[in-house]
Design a protein around this nucleic acid. Sequence first.
DNA 1: TTTCATGTAACTTCAAATATTACGAATTAG
DNA 2: CTAATTCGTAATATTTGAAGTTACATGAAA
Lengths: 146, 146
Amino acid sequence: MKRDSRLSSVLHALLHMAERGEPMTSETLAACMCTNPVVVRRTMGLLRDAGLVASARGPSGGWQIVADLNAVSLRDLYDALGEPTVFAIGNRHEAPQCLVEQAVNAALDDAFADAEALLLDRLGKITLARLSADFNRRHAAHRSRA
Amino acid sequence: MKRDSRLSSVLHALLHMAERGEPMTSETLAACMCTNPVVVRRTMGLLRDAGLVASARGPSGGWQIVADLNAVSLRDLYDALGEPTVFAIGNRHEAPQCLVEQAVNAALDDAFADAEALLLDRLGKITLARLSADFNRRHAAHRSRA
DNA sequence: TTTCATGTAACTTCAAATATTACGAATTAG
DNA sequence: CTAATTCGTAATATTTGAAGTTACATGAAA
């Protein structure tokens, strides 16, 4: 099954944006995210609605981070993206009145709910600032190797 | 995103099979799973490979549970189905050498791995026997209401 | 030996996400 | 003011992977 990599992609874009100070166009971001400018606008538009980035039209326009990197967690990004479905595995809902289906789904729902809670909790504890620091650490290590 | 409901479907089928004692044909199971006989054969074939059910051809043939319901966990079924992808959210892998991507993916991978471990652990603790008992409890409650 | 049921390959259909095209609206520079 | 640039977004096309379907061979039972 194909997986939704928007969270990963958006993080990629945001870290690149954090490195630069100035606005980046949808076109530039699309190139760096291996996708299409329109897709970038749609996705970044969600982050803008959540107050994480700002967009400006016209020459010298583009996208820029406006939030404090320390205050933005991956959970915030997940929420901004519309809380996309976490699991690729789900319940059947063909026969809601079937007692077999009810027993099965009740058991599965519990397990999935707990795992989802754990995941979102973890995402809530990872900030953009930490990822940026992690990137800079890797960058330094990389340069010292060369 | 469309979710893989095979685990739920297969559980549905197995509980129905457990209720009856005798073999059920792919056709019967397909009707009760709202799907196609060939799909049933494909899916149940995986369970047979794992030693959970047996198939027999010819008249009076069909599918039957051969494992002890107390010994089969939902984790076993998950494994038998080929350990399908758990998460609908995944990493980008467009630029493996990009340090930004590495930093992003490392953080995400940790969180997802922990959540997956929790989920599989939970699935490992739920047996078919328990689900069957749960069903019978619901069944009794349902009858006493009527 | 006829009938029933699985085994499986090949092909078709379907759904959902992503990509693309196209053009309008807003902004800046000159 | 005008031309160039960039976002905003609707409409459409493409892609992709799962599920469904057809077709027929294999094997078992009565």
